Simulated scan of single mutants.
Amino acid sequence: MDQRVEFPRLLTVADVAAILHVPVSTVHHWAQRGDGPPSFKVGKHRRFDAEVVARWLDDVKAGAA
């Protein structure tokens, strides 16, 4: 029996910046202020769940309409 654990795709600050076409410093500022897509730290490294970022972006787009 194959029992695999499915983990979410984790994105780095640079990944999120590239996806959103914003500077890396903007993503860092968002994280410090609690703005932008939700994130968490693994040690000293900030990570973003790709599905959460996608939902956040959908919410932003819906609010801009």
Score class of each variant (00 low, 15 high):
M1G: 15
M1P: 10
M1V: 15
M1T: 13
D2N: 10
D2H: 08
Q3H: 13
Q3S: 12
Q3Y: 11
Q3V: 09
Q3L: 15
R4M: 10
R4Q: 11
V5A: 01
V5Y: 02
V5S: 05
E6V: 15
E6D: 06
F7S: 12
F7G: 14
F7A: 15
P8M: 00
P8K: 00
P8R: 01
P8L: 00
R9D: 08
L11K: 03
L11N: 01
T12V: 08
V13A: 12
V13F: 01
V13G: 01
A14M: 12
A14K: 13
D15G: 06
D15N: 08
V16T: 00
V16A: 01
A17M: 05
A17I: 00
A18S: 08
A18E: 02
I19T: 00
I19F: 05
L20W: 01
L20Y: 02
L20R: 01
H21R: 08
V22E: 06
V22N: 00
V24D: 11
V24R: 15
T26Y: 06
T26Q: 09
T26S: 07
T26A: 06
V27K: 02
V27D: 04
V27W: 04
H28V: 12
H29K: 10
H29G: 13
W30L: 00
W30M: 06
Q32H: 12
Q32L: 07
R33P: 08
R33E: 08
R33V: 04
R33L: 06
R33H: 02
G34R: 02
G34H: 04
G34A: 06
D35P: 05
D35Q: 13
P37T: 05
P37G: 11
P38N: 03
P38F: 10
P38S: 04
P38Y: 11
S39Q: 07
S39Y: 01
F40E: 09
K41E: 05
V42W: 09
V42Y: 11
G43P: 02
G43N: 03
K44C: 14
K44E: 10
K44T: 13
K44A: 09
R46P: 02
R46V: 01
R47T: 04
R47V: 07
F48S: 00
F48T: 03
F48D: 02
D49H: 05
D49K: 03
D49I: 06
E51N: 12
E51L: 11
V53S: 03
V53L: 05
V53K: 00
V53D: 03
A54E: 14
A54T: 12
A54K: 13
A54P: 07
R55F: 03
R55M: 12
R55G: 14
R55K: 13
W56G: 04
W56M: 03
W56T: 02
L57E: 13
L57N: 15
L57K: 15
L57A: 11
D58F: 09
D58W: 09
D58P: 09
D58Q: 14
D59R: 14
V60A: 14
K61S: 06
K61D: 13
K61I: 10
K61E: 15
A62I: 06
G63A: 02
G63W: 00
A64P: 11
A64F: 03
A64N: 11
A64K: 13
A65K: 03
A65W: 06
A65L: 15
A65V: 09
A65Y: 12
